[in-house]
Design a binder for these strands. Sequence first.
RNA 1: GGCGGCAUAGCCAAGUGGCUAAGGCAGGAGCCUGCAAAGCUCUGAUCCCCGGUUCGAAUCCGGGUGCCGCCUCCA
Length: 467
Amino acid sequence: MSFYLYDSVQKEKREFIPLAEGKATIYVCGPTVYDDAHLGHARSALSFDILKRTLQDLGYNVTLAKNFTDIDDKIINKLATSGKTLHELTEFYINRYLEDMAALGVLRADIEPKATESIEAIEKMITELLESDCAYTIENGDIYFDTSKDSRYGSISHMVTDDAQNISRIEANSQKRNPKDFALWKACKEQDVCFNAKIGQGRPGWHIECSAMINKFFKGNDEYCIDIHCGGADLLFPHHENEAAQTRCALNKEIAKYWMHNGFVQIDGEKMSKSLGNSFFLKDALKVYDGELLRYYLISVHYRNDFNFNEVDLQNSKKRLDRLYRLKKRLYGGKVGRVNKAFKEALLQAMCDDLNSSKAMAIVDDMISSANEQLDKEPKNKALKQEILGNIDYLCQLLGIGCKDAIEWFQQGVSEEEKTKIESLIAKRAEAKKAKDFESADAIREELQNMGIAIMDMADGTKWEKL
RNA sequence: GGCGGCAUAGCCAAGUGGCUAAGGCAGGAGCCUGCAAAGCUCUGAUCCCCGGUUCGAAUCCGGGUGCCGCCUCCA
């Protein structure tokens, strides 16, 4: 089965043909670690997590790198008030990021490079750029990239290079050769964090990190460094344009063969930003909602579309995901068999079409309905039960959905004490039912309802769920 | 000012030239149930507007309207 992805540079779906047969190299632009991760970080991480899972399922040996930008203006600003060292501060947020991603079921990257641990590679690349006159040093010691030296500058984002037409908000800097030139290295100034380097004491600019780290960790071939370069839609310009330019000038090849960009997350139809006061930290969302539910909700919309996060749709997703767990609960404790071939093919086929997770989820819904229907007809069919559990198992592997324990899923946030009480009320109700005292039975059901517990009488006894 | 994206039933959301426009939530009907719940079945849209191309368009082209993003740090 071939994998097709929408290349956001060529603006069309392209068949994935890797640089090296059987291997896939992916680089995802990760977070700048000066604060907790928000829903946008989650969306990006999830988009490329399902990319990795799909390629793995197709048999590719996938190497995914996701960087941490751990030196940057915002981090330095935060340092002043935090009382921490740079390393303490960034480690703190890196760990919190990783915790959140784990809760969402995002697989750990194979390589997690940090800018501060790649100074040598960065310095080497800047030196090469200086030697070929693609970079220049200004009076204060800052080193800039000369965008005019790259004839293909603009080919990634398709932004026009004629600055007369482009009312840019780029600060005028008389020492820059071209308005679009950007800093590769920022020379040490007061109260700055500095690294010792032959190119002068200072710290790297944002764009050079990614280019240097990709070159450090991936060999690529004569034409490209890696297969797929991923990131948020906002990174296309200038970040990815600049990455590509540096790599062309320093290494004489393209940084990536394919580019993928995920769409934005809005909150209730508005852009998420601190100034609007609607920043939605994952940590806060995870206090209220299960990580797998957030995952399910966030991948229910195709990764390239914008995503409008809101409570109503999230609750809709909860109900939808509950259906899957009810099916899993129905087969609780059973042996997990092999996945149904047609189901697997259909799911994978959907994912191979530029990660159509939305379609994949519709296929899952169909599987759930038909499984319930068959189970109604043949409640004792062991092979059937095993296959359904096999399907759910595969779903967990491919999409990271349906991985949790089905009983626990419906009992989240219920204490042991409450559970005992619920069980005893259910036992009481069973007695009342047996004695045909439906009035008492219904009263107990209402009492449970008021506790936020829904019950359902099944063939093998009464089951309950936390609403 | 430059560049780009989106507009599908009450809501969310697939589909990008051709069989009955996926799927979910909400709503309606039925089966099941002591009654419910859960589960199953049935039930809903000429695809923002106007032109054009085509035997045929939600899907392609042109023009509107509306929303959003990038051009400054941003996933």
